[in-house]
Amino acid sequence: MPQDKTSYDVIITGGGPAGLSAGIYTARARLSTLLIERLAIGGQIATAEQVDNYPGFPDGIGGFELGQLMHQQATKYGLQTVTADVTSIKPAEKDITVNTTADDYTARAVIIAGGSKRQKLGVPGEEEFTGRGVSYCATCDAAFFREKPVAVVGGGDAAITEAIHLTKFASKVTVIHRRNELRATRILQEIAFAQPNMEFSWDSTVEAIEGESFVERLSLNNVRTGEKSTLVVSGVFISIGFQPDTGFLKGVVPMDANGLIITNERMETGIPGIYAAGDIRQNSARQAITAAGDGATAAIYAQKYLTEQA
């Protein structure tokens, strides 16, 4: 719901650990703060069933629960939240304008903590069959593929974790990877190679996802030999990483070739009053805890900046 107030000391874009941690710090500094989230509180970590590396939770904690707790903590100190898409950020001499699909806001400082979006394959059939065999969440959807052949696209930790999960449901799991070895950590590789119903399609890319009403087969291309083949599957799980959500920030803040925002150790972007924190910035360790640390750092230097400006 749009807030009546449109002018704030600080605006934070993104409601994951980076943004929520920043919000705890700015709200406790008694800076009026608005957090703008596109989808749902918690961000990427909220999709994790269990988080075992966030300090303070020796028995682990659900990612969704972790996000909710951070949000409660920030809200307790006065953080306001709105659900909207940020369409542009315009720096100016005094106030920075943040345009969104809900309303236009201004703030004296902005912390960009929008994280990253799931990377899509971008092949024919992907959009069409989403929810009809194309999935981006094996823990959500594995149960729909009992005793059916499925494929997983990707070779990293997330992809292999999903593939291992799927072996408990599917008749056969084929991992399609563009290289001839996995990037996933060794222990995951060992588990994966020990699965009797897991196969690997090395040096391969998906060219198209095909079927009538539901996914029936994949067209594969061997990148080494150029050989084309068909793989019969009922489902395909796509897990090829994430990309920063910074398209709308081109020309506003400095970015690298991958679209990651360049900051210094204070999370400053070089544009006065604009900070970046978490997965959206270059050299992020891409962990919930490091994102939270970035958010706190950005908030502390934003607070300093606002004090100096006043």
Binding site: L39, D85, G131, V134, Y136, C137, C140, D141, F144, F214
Partner: peptide
């Protein structure tokens, strides 16, 4: 249904929209 969350919107007994996955509130 082969993916969740899915939202189905029904009107007069017929599904008129199917929204798969986490989508913006807008």
């Amino acid at each position: 249904i082969m993916s969740i969350p899915t939202l189905l919107i029904f009107k007069d007994g017929q599904p008129v929209s199917q929204l798969v996955g986490l989508r913006p509130k807008r």
